[in-house]
Amino acid sequence: MVMLGGWKRLLSSQLAMAGLLICVVIVALGLAAPMTAPYDPAQLGAGLPMQPPSASHLLGTDELGRDVFSRVVYAARIALYVSLASTLLAAIVGIPLGLVSGYYRGWVDSVVMRVTDAWLAFPVMVLALGMTAALGPGLNNATLAIGFVTIPLFIRLTRGQVLSLSQRQYIEAARAAGQSNTIILARHLLPNIVPVLIVQFSLAAGSAVLVETALSFLGVGVMPPTPSWGSMLSSAQAYLLMAPWMAIAPGTCIFLLVLGLNLVGDGLRDALDPRTAR
C-alpha cells in the first residue's frame, strides 16, 4: 500500500539517499570510535600542538596536541547520543499526550493545547539555555533540556494526526463495533501515524544536534573532557587564523549530520505524501 510506493520513492530520491549515506557514515564512525579513532581523544601531545592535517593526523592537531580526527569521531557519539536520547524522551512524553488530547478532545485537549502553546512560545534555544542554567551543565542535563523543549512538537503533531484520522470511517467503524478506546488508540490510530512521527523524529534529531552543539559551544552543555563538536569549535575560535582546521572539522561535522538528518526527514515525508513530492 502507501508504504511500499513510499519506499520506492524514497530510494529513488537522490537527496534522501545522500542524507542517509551521510547519517550512516557518521553513525558508523561514531559507533566504531574505539577502532576508527587512531588516538585517544583526550591524549595530550598525541602530536605537536596545532599541526595542520597530515597523514598521521588526518584533521591536524589542536592547541593541546590532541588528534582532531579522533576527537571529532568521539564527539560524533556524543552528538548522536544527545540527539537520539533527547528526541526519544520528547517522543515518549509527547506522543501519548498528543494521542490522548486528540482522541478524547474536550477539556483534556484544551488544557494540553494551551500548555503546548505556552511551551512553544519560548524560542527553543532560549528555553534550553534557561533550563541548563537551572539544572547545571553536563551531558545528561543537556539531554534533558533538549528533550524538554522538543516535547510540544510531538504533542502538536500527534494530536493533529489523530484529529484528522478520527474522522475516518474505519475508526468510526471500530467505535461502533464497541472496541475499547485503548485498543482503538493502540491498534488503529498509532500505527497509522507512525510514518509521520518518524519524519518528525528525524527532523527533531537534527534540530537537537544544533541545540546540543550550541549549548556546548557556549560552555553550558557537554563539558570537557567529553569531546563535543560545539566545545571544539569554541576553543578553535581563538586560533582561527593559526589553525583553521580546528574550527572547520567539527563545524563541518555538525553541518553534515544536521543536513543528513534533514534530507532523510524530507525524503521520508515526500515518500509518504506524494502530493508534496517535487
Binding site: 537534527g206 544544533l210 552543539t213 550550541a214 559551544f217 560545539g230 569549535l233 569554541s234 578553535a236 575560535q237 582561527l240 587564523l241 583553521p244 574550527a247 572547520i248 563545524g251 555538525i254 553541518f255 553534515l256 544536521v258 543536513l259 534533514n262 534530507l263
Partner: peptide, 23 residues
C-alpha cells in the same frame, strides 16, 4: 534552502570572521 537548515550559526559566524574580517 538546505544549508539554511543545517548550518549552525556559530560555525557560519566563525567562517565569516575568518574570511571577511581576519583575512
Amino acid at each position: 534552502g538546505l544549508a539554511g537548515l543545517a548550518m549552525p550559526g556559530f560555525f557560519l559566524a566563525l567562517l565569516l570572521i575568518l574570511v571577511v574580517s581576519l583575512k
